[in-house]
């Protein structure tokens, strides 16, 4: 009985991280279902997808890609900052990330409202008048970007919580696994966009 380990309330950062990764896998496969539907329809209606994609503004898409990539870097840097014990810098970098995420959402808002203004939204007269492949493309466009935007919102909420936890001293130089996990989630949002962007905006 001597050779046993006494049980103190102990923190297993590795377990938290593994849990987060597995959660990320489920998110990836959630989008995976949509990508599968996209792949099948794109193979079937490649011409229509091409025509429909002309409606999308590649410039806005590119701008949003750049925004998300930069925000991914600032989150990664915020983790570096906390690891080096620079609490103030970490908070600033997270604030920048949240600001960038807001820009992303503003862009998205104008993009969507432009389409809706032209009567191009699910169930509308204009949309049901399109031929089959184009109809499917816009359906997928709204579903994928909508679900992605929802994840941006969730990511923003998580990062905001992390920001306050750094402020209140719950996340520190030697207890930062929650910030790391929040960061992982944000990178997931970025990762999905990296694939959505060429598949929706850059069809030629």
């Amino acid at each position: 009985m001597e050779n046993t380990i006494s049980h103190i309330v102990h923190r297993d950062d590795e377990a938290s991280k593994m849990g987060m990764w597995i959660f990320i896998f489920t998110e990836l496969l959630l989008f995976g279902g949509l990508f599968l539907v996209y792949a099948v329809f794109r193979a079937k209606y490649s011409e229509d997808f091409h025509i429909a994609a002309m409606e999308l503004n590649a410039f806005v898409g590119t701008a949003n890609t750049v925004i998300l990539l930069i925000s991914s870097m600032t989150v990664a840097m915020a983790i570096t900052a906390i690891q080096k014990g620079d609490k103030g810098l970490s908070i600033k970098l997270l604030a920048v990330t949240l600001l960038l995420a807001t820009f992303f959402m503003i862009n998205k808002y104008f993009e969507w409202s432009g389409k809706i203004h032209h009567g191009l939204y699910p169930g509308s007269e204009v949309m049901l008048g399109l031929n089959r492949g184009q109809l499917l493309f816009f359906g997928l466009y709204y579903a994928t970007t909508g679900l992605h935007a929802l994840h941006v919102f969730i990511g923003m909420a998580i990062l905001a919580v992390m920001l306050f936890r750094i402020k209140s001293g719950k996340i520190t130089q030697d207890n930062f696994v929650h910030l790391e996990n929040g960061g992982l989630y944000w990178h997931l949002v970025d990762l999905i966009w990296i694939f959505l962007f060429p598949l929706l905006y850059l069809i030629t």
Binding site: S72, M73, V75, A76, E180, L191, F195, P198, L199, L202
Partner: peptide, 19 residues
């Protein structure tokens, strides 16, 4: 080509940003 480039980008994010 688009998918290959996206995969390279994705791998980069996974390898470095996601550690």
């Amino acid at each position: 080509v688009a998918l290959i480039i996206a995969s390279i980008k994705g791998t980069t994010v996974l390898t470095y940003f996601m550690h």
